[in-house]
């Protein structure tokens, strides 16, 4: 029944890149409103995993179900899933030839067929939510890194997705701007949004995550609530990783 439906169900996911086994037998379920932080050493497949969820990366074996809709080969299926899933990229990927407002209204107007006025109203709401309504008519080139990433978050939110994916959203930012973006993400978490976040920011994980997922060499090694994960990791590999990143 849809009442107990999970936001994301990943069953037996295996992905190869040429001959290289990138994701090994991933099984993961994310409940509605749950906030998941995925961490791991570089090359562990964590970015690849969330990129599979909205179809940016294809998978060869296994099943991915997003809000009840399976990601299949069917024509138009992937686009329907993507309209329900928002993504924020490490490199922001804002469209440089459009203003912040236009970046946000593009998809609602052309994918959801919203009229322009309604789209702009909605976009301004979200730009307000990320605390930069005054930058609405500026071009990305005129904004700081932190501001650009917040516009990217607003852009994803304007499609009113059920799930938000974050792929190392603060890794490309100068240190003084990481705080503003993390704060925005914390506020977003407090509204009950389902979030899957690949990040190295362990402070964020401790505050916000319901569960922390540790991945290494393409497989999920350990999943636990942050309390347990940081103070009492079970696997040796987890312990090694934590010792390297916690200063």
């Amino acid at each position: 029944m849809s009442g107990a439906q999970n936001a994301v169900d990943i069953i037996g996911l295996n992905k190869w890149f040429k001959a290289f086994h990138v994701l090994k037998d991933i099984n993961l379920s994310v409940a509605r409103g749950e906030r998941l932080v995925i961490c791991g050493p570089s090359g562990s497949g964590k970015s690849t995993l969330i990129r599979c969820i909205n179809g940016l990366e294809p998978h060869q074996e296994g099943k991915i179900v997003v809000e009840g809709a399976a990601l299949t080969e069917e024509v138009g299926q992937v686009e329907a899933v993507r309209a329900n899933v928002g993504m924020v990229f490490q490199q922001f990927n804002l469209f440089p030839h459009l203003t912040a407002l236009e970046n946000c209204t593009l998809a609602p107007m052309w994918v959801k067929k919203m009229p322009k006025a309604a789209a702009e109203k909605l976009a301004m709401q979200y730009l307000d939510r990320v605390h930069i309504p005054d930058q609405a008519n500026k071009y990305p080139g005129q904004l700081s890194g932190g501001q650009q990433q917040r516009v990217a978050i607003a852009r994803a939110l304007t499609m009113e997705p059920r799930i938000m994916l974050f792929d190392e959203p603060t890794s490309a930012l100068d240190p003084e701007m990481i705080k503003e973006v993390l704060e925005t993400m914390v506020e977003l978490a407090e509204t009950g949004m389902t979030m899957l976040c690949v990040t190295h920011e362990m402070g964020f994980a401790r505050t916000v995550a319901n569960r922390v997922v540790f991945m290494d060499h393409g497989e999920i090694v350990e999943i636990a609530p942050p309390q347990e994960f940081f103070s009492n990791p079970k696997s040796e590999r987890t312990k090694e990783f934590l010792s390297q990143i916690i200063r």
Binding site: N54, G55, L56, E79, A80, R82, A83, V85, G86, M87, F89, Q91, N93, L94, F95, P96, H97, L106, A107, W110, V111, A152, R155, A156, M159
Partner: peptide, 27 residues
């Protein structure tokens, strides 16, 4: 054009021709 532009357009649900017309080709 960096690949990320196309990915961002895809991630928002824009189809191939929509992404080309509004995001990639203008740039």
């Amino acid at each position: 054009i960096p690949k990320g532009q196309y990915e961002a357009a895809q991630a928002m649900g824009l189809g191939y021709w929509q992404a080309m017309a509004f995001v990639i080709l203008p740039q």
